[in-house]
Amino acid sequence: MKILVCISKTPDTTAKIAFTEGNTKLDENGIQWIINPYDEWYSLVRAIEHKEKDPTTIIHLVTVGGADVEPIIRKALALGGDEAIRVNLQSNDSFTVASQIAAVAKNGAYDLIFTGKETIDYNSASIGSMVAAILDLPYISLANHFTLNGNDAIIKREIEGGEETNEVSLPVVVSCQKGMAEQRIPNMRGIMAARTKPLHVQEPIACDETTQVMQYELPPAKQGVKLVAPDNMDELVRLLKEEAKVI
């Protein structure tokens, strides 16, 4: 079993977001970088759980980014995984990133490709579906449970107001979310081992960007909260009806 796990670097969930250079760039001052939580907690850990059950499993990590992503990919290797591949390209265009991952996936002949359900910076939720489409593979989104039965994967995924179980033959691309695995933290042995695990740097394949970020903007500040006395719920009802007009 060969698993490819996609890893993205994102600002920490508590990061204060600001922009520089005429609102065209994220202000990286004071930002702590983390592994995108969905990539780390759910897809990477689920792959590691599988390897713990079946030690012949090979896990490769792939990331598309500049050299600044390397501490993040080392951190991911400290959790688990055998080798990592960094495609040396910085792009905000989902199609460009997915094309690079698909090229890596094609080379490695993986049985399973895991992504997180989305990244917490661009929130595009597109990479898994695009990789599957480029490779013409089946795709299951928003998976919250995954098991294998021979060459078939049995995957539960979220649907509106419930969940659904699907059976699919490998290879398959899966986007992972809560439920897939239990979050863990790397231990000392993992951190030491990660230092010497292979991290291959690969140049990107040619690809035209289909989209381009022009500018960022912060949302307008809230007007400020209007406080209503706890013994005056009639007033709150009136405000919701007449002012906010939501009920």
Binding site: T13, I17, D121, Y122, V213, E217
Partner: peptide, 16 residues
């Protein structure tokens, strides 16, 4: 225009 950073900001994106 789309929401980014989990609703903390917006980005204007050009489709080419």
């Amino acid at each position: 225009t789309k929401t980014v950073f989990s609703g903390k900001a917006f980005a204007s994106v050009k489709i080419a």
